[in-house]
Design a protein around this nucleic acid. Sequence first.
DNA 1: GGTGTTTGTCGAACCGGTTCGATAAGTGCG
DNA 2: CGCACTTATCGAACCGGTTCGACAAACACC
Lengths: 339, 339
Amino acid sequence: MSTIRDVARIAGVSISTVSLTLNNPDRVSTETKRKVAEAARAVGYTANPIAQSLKRGRSRLIGMVVSDITNPFFGNLLQEIERCAMEADYLVVVSDTAGREVAEKAILNHLSGQLVSGIILQPCGHYLGLANHIAALDMPFVLFDHKLAEIESDFVGTDNVLASAMLTEHLIRLGHTRIGYIGGTTGLYTAEKRKQGFYETMKASGLKVNENLVLDGRYSGDQGYEAAMRLMTLRADRPTALLAASNVMALGALQACNDLAIDCPGEVSIAGIDDVPWSNVIRPRITMAVQPVEEMARVASRMLMDRIAATDPNEIPFKDVILAPRLVIGQSTRALSPS
Amino acid sequence: MSTIRDVARIAGVSISTVSLTLNNPDRVSTETKRKVAEAARAVGYTANPIAQSLKRGRSRLIGMVVSDITNPFFGNLLQEIERCAMEADYLVVVSDTAGREVAEKAILNHLSGQLVSGIILQPCGHYLGLANHIAALDMPFVLFDHKLAEIESDFVGTDNVLASAMLTEHLIRLGHTRIGYIGGTTGLYTAEKRKQGFYETMKASGLKVNENLVLDGRYSGDQGYEAAMRLMTLRADRPTALLAASNVMALGALQACNDLAIDCPGEVSIAGIDDVPWSNVIRPRITMAVQPVEEMARVASRMLMDRIAATDPNEIPFKDVILAPRLVIGQSTRALSPS
DNA sequence: GGTGTTTGTCGAACCGGTTCGATAAGTGCG
DNA sequence: CGCACTTATCGAACCGGTTCGACAAACACC
């Protein structure tokens, strides 16, 4: 690997001139520019990013921390973020917290130790310490998906209230009134918002929510299955529709109905939030409120890059960007047949 | 951030002694060890990884390059690799080539520029230049999934021949003889091996492969759908079973049959290689040859780490590790009913 | 022609570690 | 006691860049 000193020697100038030429060409004579460019080409010079990082105190890496990489939602997200980062000449370091708060703290420390320039974080904990921890790291952050109230930062997410409201509205229009709700982990930001959308829409339509039909599925397929099992085996007043707060839980619910030989959409309508990979092969095609993943990724990347590029990262006002989900109607929901 | 000089000053020793204490404690007196440890704790010292990288010429990062992160197969793989790396105090930089050869080269250059210690690569190209390119980078490599014949390196993969052989055998035992084969991209390592397993098993059972029933699905869901459509609308000798070389193509085939109102497994059996996310919610449950993802990830990580740790990376002999897939029988395959 | 300003280049310090050769003190042995 | 050898510590060079202040040359102006 050739260094800046090699270039300087061959071009017959000092290393500071070479550096200047490369970073600030306006302040250098045409003749010098030519000589340096030529010498650089001759030895195949590329600047050593590590040496640059050392001097600048930051590396050309950004961190992305999510709670579960295996969820296809994050696959798509990561793909787009990585694309954006690559365009800006950054690489992406990915870490999976597996939903564990201890791991989350450790990973954040590790990343900040590696002097990443910024972090896109989907917080998995809602504990108080996290906000302080993040603030203490003192680096550009973009929160994703789950908003932490305790800390000022950029945030990108979907309108979770709207997502469940859209689906609830859809079900109500189809004539459903006894709607079972399978929620996400109680206490989590998205879970609460989604539940809120359900309640509000029911109320706005003059419907009373039957609390027996509202369960916590903890965002897991198994728990979604179990919740649906409980709901669909109720003696009296079995729901005619199920609304799940996530894709996996909706699939779990579908499976439960399959196993109970309850036909969907014939006997029960099912809808869920989030896309499902290869959703077009799953029968029936599930009605869902899809988050605009690519756009979320692009927005998050841009916000992070802008903050990294700023001379004083705190001069930029913090923004919340809330994107609207898209309602995709499948074959899993159907008008309630008069009975 | 405190530096090694701060520690040296407070401990009342030289910086070289501090460095020695941290990296080579045996060569330092007990008293000095104590003083240094105390001073380090007092100022909250942690070594700057960038400075270390600069001096050592390598960073504590490993690269992982795949052709499509959104494929859940890679999600699981990445999760485990990241876990292994974290244990060894490495971070994982992920990049997606999107199957484009140009991107692949650019990414490899970019990674080597960042002085990653090693790379786990699923090559997307089978062009000649790639092998040379890799060799020129001169760093520890573990190839994954697709083996490049032109280069000496470590390799981890599944026994692709066995995978399709197992499934073919399974179908033959169920009485199928007219088996349609939907292959992966022609020319790709895995695609050829998988096709080979199909042909060999057919031959070993004394069956002749009908070339009209063998199509190329290019590892894409759409192409799998299209291939299945063609196969299942044949006038004469429609296949009684379909074998797809990947998960997505199997799902595509299933969808095609659904759309044609051809019952699976009643009228056609379908089997595929690779797991499908949430495969237990897709009805019918597809019979498949599952790759041992976690184990592949662990093996790949270990091989890479060993080579990184070696004083002379080339002293270790190169290994090929070929793991056996696991046959998981679902409800998509059924004994051929006598007709 | 002297003074003030701009322009182009350079040397040296610096970022924060690692490592090698030198030095000094301590140990064993004839 | 003197010599060889080990052990503990240190100073200085180095990794490969960036950046600041110094300085000389060129230029403008009165």
